[in-house]
Simulated assay, not measured.
Amino acid sequence: MDTLRLMHLFTRALDLGSLSAVAREAGTTQPTVSKAINALEAHLGVRLLERSTTGLLATAEGLRFHERARRLLDEYDDALADVRGHARQATGLLRVNAPVALGQFHLNALAQEFLALHPDIGIELILNDRFVDLVGDGVDVAVRLGGPLPPDAVARTIAASPRWLVAAPSYLAAHARVKRPDDLARHEFIRFAWLADGDELALQRGAEMMKVTTRGRYRVNNALAIRDSLLAGAGIGLCPQWLVHELVQAGQLARVLPAWSGTPQQVALVTPSRRYQPARARLFMDFLAARIGALPGWTSTAA
């Protein structure tokens, strides 16, 4: 039994979503592909796919096996290229997870630029503000903003963005002037939900550090919602420069206590804790490391 061939047909079936598409790609027939996957299921003793009139659906076992099989096939192809003395062209589907705002402002455009450079690579960009299970969700690269990282992952910090206190001019005109950090406690402070430090805010002015306990009736777990709330005059917030710099330039938001800033927000590329990474993931991480630090509001920290 050619197990590697069967694994390849199975992974492509799940990637493409139909047996006929795999057959066309492999230059064979749909019944041949179906028999091959049936043989793989019989060999493993588990059902990998559920067939329906609308397409293919992986079972729980099929999803787990697909993740492991895809990486094994990638490593096998890289090993062949290495022993033959040349680099294998990066191919295949790259699964990327990132926060919503960062995806909308930067990663969507960067992904299109990367795809234009690498026509044999596909990207599945999943945007949400929770930290996913890299292995369980089949993620190749997660782009994370600040915060603690899971112990079973490998992180590479590539850039940082200063964090500014900002508010709408309408809010500042209607409320008491903020002259020093302690004054923030008397204002509506809009912050990200679930922060480890809660309402405590750490600020710095050169070498001087100060902690302030803020108050606010509104918390939200989405940076775009915080930005919109600040624009609407709902309060003061601490935001990374990349999120608000153009609004400050346009006068739609104003800096509060501009001599003070928060701890810079770092962006890290996170991968599952394993020695091997497919060539497409390595290429994408190097691409992001070179590009994000050069964007407005960011400073590169990549080596």
Rank of each mutant, 00 (worst) to 15 (best):
P181T: 09
Q204S: 12
G138E: 04
D182E: 15
A160C: 06
H106Q: 13
L107C: 06
L110A: 09
A111N: 11
N108E: 13
D182P: 00
A153K: 01
H106N: 08
A174D: 05
W164G: 00
R186K: 12
E208R: 07
F189M: 12
L172H: 01
W194A: 15
L134D: 00
D197C: 07
P181H: 08
V154P: 00
R180G: 04
A142G: 04
L195A: 06
Q112T: 11
R191E: 02
V139P: 00
E208S: 09
Q112G: 14
D182V: 11
D197E: 15
Q112H: 15
V141L: 13
I126K: 13
A116N: 08
V139I: 15
F105S: 08
F189E: 00
A116C: 07
G103D: 07
L172C: 03
R177Q: 09
H175A: 04
F192I: 10
I190N: 00
R177S: 06
A111P: 03
D197Y: 09
G138V: 07
A109C: 06
H118G: 07
A185T: 13
L115N: 05
A196I: 08
A116I: 11
A155W: 02
N108V: 15
Q204G: 05
G198T: 11
A111S: 15
D197R: 15
Q104M: 13
F192K: 12
V212Y: 04
V139K: 02
V100N: 10
D183Y: 05
V141P: 00
D152F: 03
S161G: 03
F192N: 05
D133P: 02
L172R: 08
F114C: 08
M210V: 15
Q204C: 06
H118D: 06
G122S: 15
L195M: 11
V166T: 03
P150Y: 03
Q112N: 14
G147Q: 06
A101F: 06
K179H: 09
F114A: 07
L203R: 07
P162C: 03
V100H: 09
Q104D: 11
A142L: 05
A101E: 08
A101Q: 10
F114Q: 06
P162L: 03
I158D: 00
A109W: 09
A155Y: 01
N128E: 12
P162F: 03
K179Q: 09
G146N: 08
E124Y: 10
A142W: 01
G198N: 13
D197K: 14
A116E: 12
G206F: 01
P119F: 08
L117N: 07
A109G: 09
L115I: 14
F105M: 14
F131I: 11
P151T: 04
L203W: 12
V139T: 12
P169H: 05
A207H: 07
A196W: 08
P151Y: 02
A109T: 12
A176K: 10
H118N: 15
A207T: 12
V143H: 03
W194R: 15
E113C: 11
A142I: 05
A168S: 13
L172Q: 03
I158H: 02
L149N: 01
H106P: 02
Q204W: 09
V132T: 11
V143N: 01
D129K: 14
Q104C: 06
L117P: 01
Q112A: 13
I158L: 06
D197A: 15
P151K: 05
D137Q: 12
R156A: 01
L110Y: 09
R144D: 00
